[in-house]
Amino acid sequence: MRRLLALLGLPLVVTAAGCAPAGSDPAGPTAGGSPSAGGSSASAPDHRWEAFDQRAAEVAGAWRPDPVWSTGYVPLQHATVLTGDPGFNAHTKAAFQAGWYSDQVELPANRPAAGTIRFPDGTMTVPLLSAAEAYRQLDQGDPPPCEGRPKVPGPTVEPGPDGSVGSPVATACIPLTVTAVKLGTASVRTSRGVADVPAWLFTVEELTAPVARLAVAPSAVTAPKDPQPPTGPAPGDIVGAVDLVAVEDARLTVRLGVGACDTGITPLVQERPDVVVVGGRVIRSTGACIAMLKLEPVTVTLKAPLGARPVLDVVSGAPLLLDGR
Results as ranks from 00 to 15, higher is better:
residue 126 V to D: 03
residue 165 V to C: 06
residue 173 C to A: 11
residue 93 K to M: 09
residue 135 Y to P: 05
residue 165 V to W: 07
residue 125 T to F: 09
residue 96 F to L: 15
residue 130 S to L: 12
residue 153 P to R: 06
residue 155 P to T: 11
residue 88 F to Y: 10
residue 167 S to E: 00
residue 120 P to N: 15
residue 128 L to V: 01
residue 99 G to N: 08
residue 147 E to Y: 02
residue 150 P to D: 14
residue 104 Q to H: 11
residue 92 T to F: 05
residue 175 P to T: 02
residue 101 Y to F: 11
residue 169 V to L: 09
residue 146 C to R: 08
residue 132 A to N: 11
residue 120 P to V: 14
residue 149 R to T: 06
residue 105 V to T: 02
residue 130 S to I: 10
residue 100 W to M: 00
residue 123 T to E: 13
residue 171 T to Y: 04
residue 136 R to E: 13
residue 111 R to T: 06
residue 115 G to K: 06
residue 145 P to I: 03
residue 116 T to E: 14
residue 121 D to Q: 13
residue 164 S to A: 14
residue 118 R to T: 11
residue 149 R to P: 01
residue 173 C to Q: 03
residue 161 P to G: 03
residue 123 T to L: 08
residue 120 P to A: 15
residue 176 L to P: 06
residue 133 E to A: 15
residue 176 L to Q: 07
residue 124 M to Y: 06
residue 142 D to T: 03
residue 123 T to Y: 05
residue 129 L to G: 07
residue 115 G to S: 05
residue 167 S to V: 00
residue 127 P to I: 02
residue 118 R to Q: 10
residue 157 V to D: 01
residue 104 Q to I: 02
residue 133 E to Q: 15
residue 105 V to K: 01
residue 129 L to H: 08
residue 131 A to M: 13
residue 138 L to K: 14
residue 173 C to W: 02
residue 175 P to C: 04
residue 153 P to E: 04
residue 149 R to D: 06
residue 120 P to E: 15
residue 122 G to W: 03
residue 151 K to H: 06
residue 140 Q to F: 13
residue 128 L to K: 02
residue 146 C to T: 00
residue 122 G to N: 08
residue 123 T to D: 12
residue 158 E to I: 13
residue 92 T to G: 07
residue 158 E to L: 14
residue 127 P to T: 05
residue 124 M to K: 13
residue 163 G to L: 01
residue 137 Q to R: 14
residue 141 G to V: 08
residue 105 V to D: 00
residue 132 A to Y: 08
residue 130 S to K: 12
residue 140 Q to H: 15
residue 89 N to E: 02
residue 162 D to Q: 07
residue 103 D to V: 07
residue 154 G to M: 15
residue 88 F to N: 10
residue 104 Q to Y: 04
residue 137 Q to T: 12
residue 141 G to P: 04
residue 163 G to H: 00
residue 115 G to T: 04
residue 115 G to E: 04
residue 103 D to P: 06
residue 165 V to A: 13
residue 135 Y to A: 12
residue 146 C to H: 04
residue 144 P to E: 10
residue 166 G to Q: 03
residue 106 E to N: 01
